[in-house]
Design a binder for these strands. Sequence first.
DNA 1: GCCGTTTTCGGCCCGACTGTTTTCAGTCG
Length: 581
Amino acid sequence: MLNKEIAEIFNTFADVYEILIDELQENDKQISFKIRAYRQAALTLQNLSQDLKVLNTKKHLDALPGIGAAFASKIQEYINTGKIAEFEQLKTLVPPGLLDILNIPGLGPKKVKLFYTQLGITNLEQLAKAVKEGQIEQLPRMGKKSADKILEAINRFHLQPKRFLLGDAIPQIESIIEDLKSSKLIDRISYAGSARRQNVTVGDIDIICSTNNPAQVIAYFKKQPYINEIIAEGNTKISVYLQSKLQMDLRVVAPHQFGAALQYFTGSKAHNVKLRTIAKTLGYKINEYGIFKENQCVGGENEEDIYKTLKMRTPPPEIRENTGEIELAQTQNLPHLINLKNIRGDLHMHSTYSDGKQSIREMTEAAQARGYEYIAITDHSPSLHIAKGVSESALVEKKAEIDKLNNDPDIKIKILFGTEVDILADGTLDYPNKILKTFDIVIASIHSRLSQDNTQRIISAMQNPFVHIIGHPGTRMLNKRDQSPNDWSKIFTVAAQTNTILEINASPKRLDLDGNLVKEAQKYGCTFTINTDAHNIDQLDFMCYGVGQARRGYLTKADVINTYSLKQLLTKLKQSINCKA
DNA sequence: GCCGTTTTCGGCCCGACTGTTTTCAGTCG
Ligand SMILES: Nc1nc2c(ncn2[C@H]2C[C@H](O)[C@@H](COP(=O)(O)OP(=O)(O)OP(=O)(O)O)O2)c(=O)[nH]1
Ligand SMILES: [Mg+2]
Ligand SMILES: [Mg+2]
Ligand SMILES: [Zn+2]
């Protein structure tokens, strides 16, 4: 978590500088670019999958985007001494509570500073009190409306989570898009923002549409029952809170602008800034309405227009994070990413033999209906009592049932006899090897001691001669529990050496490994499988989220074993075992 | 503070909406 700590410090540097901007010696323009540099560096560190500890040299750090000599030495100072002297100094210049106030939507550095210098307000409680007592509305450029909004924003801030799971947002996005289409006012419509990029969590829902009647579209949208409250409304966009508590932005443009608007609204912000900067050096201007040369629009109906004009290929949305994709697009070196249609089977799911809700036959028929060629039924092992792990004797019965189904003429797909065997505290497995070798496929997963460094347990499991796959390697639960502080470089090294396949667990609560770690693991030569870990038939549809993470990790279908034919898959699994024997 | 078909200083994306203003600062996308 070192990376996150330092990222947080850099963000705080930026916040404090922004509050103090008028007091500083440097001129405003210069300092505001410096602030941007701190934020950019923080973003780089946040998304970095390698631990900074292993990058603790000037050379490595300097190579990171947005990190130069000055930031590198600050990072090293923190790694080596546990703090940054300049930061300790800076922190004393503003009361820490001011930074909490900055987190309230609608309040920025200027307002925070105003409340502090005029009324001595240093934390959220004092701010709420000042609003209620009518002091805030007396301040310059403030009024009753602004003051009341602050109180509402504070209440909302305390009540709801900051980010939502992608898997909770996508179904809502799809139903809203269907509703808007049904209005017959829409030309084209798409989701955008972090959801289109398949971020594991989203801060809000972003939808873009084109129409010849923007006013009618906005009027239609705002009176729909799923809307709770309107935050802002204009001629081209409307921001609302949904009944589900999520915030949503709808952007509306003319049909010939749809592509440019989609490009803008998909982001990421860092990607947009980089792209617009490149455009500028080439004599173009990009905004959400098009790409322009000398004020003449030269494209914008389709997203590709923007990139093509700059002599680039169009990068898939999932990798638009300004982490190298623009350079690949410029040199025509974008990878051909895996997609959902490439998936031929699902290798991790549960049945009523353990904690699944449906029988093996039901799971199989559902998988067959989804067009798969094979599945693996991978129930838990005995030590996981709460998940009703399968005893050794029940395994015989389970095997017989699978054999029978595989001979059933109605079942056209191959069912693999599998297990998700628990990795115990000491790194040994919950079935003895003589049992493990009877399975067609063995996933080993950790389900205990989740907050500790589990590198050694995972490595021990990978070295077991019967383990094919490591399931949900980070064991995180999004918004609930961080992933274990593992040494990923060690894990990926051993995974590549032992031919152990790493799972991208597609459950929207996990998404583990996620795109960032996948991208890193790929550099070590690792192979992957994308599995839903379904506990009922509906959850088989989680596959799309796993594919999203694989795409964020730059994977092609060759990197993912459940894009293989059954024959290729079985060969691959055998290789994985032979390598360790 | 970072960065470079500008190799080392001078740039650093571009626009919408609100509230309070009488011309725009502040915040957010
Ligand atoms: N050019 C430009 N585009 C921006 C800027 N801020 C946001 N955007 C674009 C790119 C974003 O992906 C898109 C939607 O903005 P959001 O604030 O909703 O961000 P995003 O969806 O990426 O992440 P989120 O999960 O909502 O926090 O708008 C900006 O400062 N400049
Ligand atoms: Mg968003
Ligand atoms: Mg948004
Ligand atoms: Zn499972």
